[in-house]
Amino acid sequence: MRDATKTSVAPGSADEATAEPAAPAAPVRDAAKPRSLLQDAVRDLVRKPLFLVSSGIILVLVVMAAFPTLFASADPQLCELGRSLQKPSADAWFGYDARGCDVYARTIHGARTSITVGVLATLGSAVIALLLGLISGFYGRWIDAVISRGIDIVMGIPFLVGAIVILNSFRDEDGFRIGGIWGVLTALTVLGWMSMARIMRSTAMQTKQSDYVTAARSLGASTGRLMFRHVLPNALTPLIVLATISLGVIISAEATLSFLGVGIQEPTISWGVMINQSLGRIRESLHPLLFPAGFVSITVLAFIMLGDAVRDALDPKLR
């Protein structure tokens, strides 16, 4: 749609419109129309310092996760006890931790795990929430009752209890816990979709009653088309906002699971693992804790701010 708008200023487009009036996405229709809500939102967003700052931070973090060697040349797995707990210096910007590993290199390399877990778990739970919420809100009746009670049931499980129990079942043949990202990813996805599904359900219910949905239905649109072409795009905003905010929360939750000793473990590096390792020695030195914890906090902050900015831009009521 956006591409269509760009080309709409092309001369002669009016003729095209008269030639094929039935084409639903003919460029000229957009030319006559004022900017769409989405375009308004984008225009709003790029002027907002909150959005620019938060998306800038997120961009840097994503690049860091994709190409850690661009930022840090030191080997994150190279640890020498001789330099244990040395303070930040020109060689190692964030100093060394208790085992003599370079904190800066580890923080940079840890970004990949933490951000991958955050993004994948959020995407996974958003997809579950989208489908269940949409089906439940669109169909209503007994389907809604069943799905809603299901949401209530999973929501009743305390997050950490559920996560620990799930993670405990990730074991190799010898019964040792597997400390990779898959367990954490599963736990965070399985236990993270409920509030998003509730939001999706209620917006789908509201949208379903709009006149344009009734109009499409009376024109003979199929259920699938009604659900995915008419209801979904107009009911998606709150889900997107909530997902953005919960991305930060999930990164923090990953760290918490490492703290409890059930999350990601060495040799995988994540911010949670680093924080957990540094906690035992915080009486002596604070910097091995401060940097990874600071990165977690900044990431959480950036996603919360991004969510706020997107909500402000997409919510027509606040205009």
């Binding site: 930060g248 923090s252 760290a255 906690l279 906090s297 902050l301 701010m305």
Partner: peptide, 13 residues
């Protein structure tokens, strides 16, 4: 915002 962003176990410890 700062309090929300800091993981609670870091705050506690």
């Amino acid at each position: 915002l700062t309090v929300i962003a800091i993981p609670i176990f870091v705050l506690g410890q």
